[in-house]
Amino acid sequence: MKALASLWGRLPGTARAGVVLLGLFVLAAIIGPQVIPYDPNAVTPLTLKPPSAAHLLGTTQTGQDVLSQLLVGIRLTLELGLYVGVLATALSVLVGVTAAFLGGVWDDFLSLLCNVFLVIPALPLLIVMLGYFPQKGQLPSILVLSILGWAWGARVVRAQALTIRNRDFVAASRETGERGWRIILFEIIPNIVSLIAASFVNTVLYAIGASVALAFIGVADVSSWSLGTILYWSQSANSLQLGAWWWFVPPGLAVALIGTGLVLLNTGIDELSNPRLRDARSSTKIAGSRIWPTDPTPVLGMPKLTTRGRLATLVHSFSRSSLLDAPGGEF
């Protein structure tokens, strides 16, 4: 609990916003299906009614309750994202760390595999592959998205694991006589947890985006309610032309907000694990005035000097004359 609190304290503001946003959707996904007012499949004569007290988000062309569909849809979509995230990240860690640790021919082969998967045009392949599977539930989508979604993460994990592998503590545990798999699991992987977390969040984002897109064009089990299939039905019923905004805006907005939450969270993890990024971007408040990293050290009791602005600071930190600055974090 204390560790969680301190983690929250170190998160940048944007990431906290992302966590809150995602938390709302996860909450909706957990309790939503229990509290839905209607069966999302129930066809009623009340067709295409705008939001009212009885139907908070209106009804569809077949008189189904949009709110109920939305709550069930959020759950299905997040579930899919979670499964794909776990599967694809596990694959990318397996491939990335193995390639880095074994090196040599294995590294060459696994890197080649990564690159092949990276250059395959994903969406057409998804459509073709999903076309072969029987459309029953989300399992086909989850499998296919996972198979196509691990390569980017594997590359990043491999690069990081390579630098960790060359650190002395890995050599030291070999010196102790540890087995290879133990070194991977207990020495290398704990050091790249934040990278794996970032990769996971990214994969979830990709999975949700792709699954919604696929469902929207009908390559999914359209008999179940996900955010994508809601959009598919509303599009096929020409809801836009009919002016039934309550049918397509809520699921669209939900997808957009989930995506935003994930992106915010990801930048937060990035900054947490890469102090240089944090230093170059953030200012500190000292003695009542904001100080940028390249400003002269403030003197208590002295008025603040006019200094570089935020953009100029960022540009300066990449410029050659930053060679003449003091190294950061000097104690």
Binding site: D279, S283, T284, I286, A287, I291, P293, T294, P296, T297, P298, V299, L300, G301, D325, A326, G328, G329, E330, F331
Partner: peptide
């Protein structure tokens, strides 16, 4: 020792502050 020298040139980064 480094803090003293860098501080004298005001090259220290936040959260450093010269208190007098």
């Amino acid at each position: 020792k480094s803090t003293l020298a860098y501080g004298a040139c005001r090259l220290l980064r936040p959260p450093a502050v010269i208190t007098g």
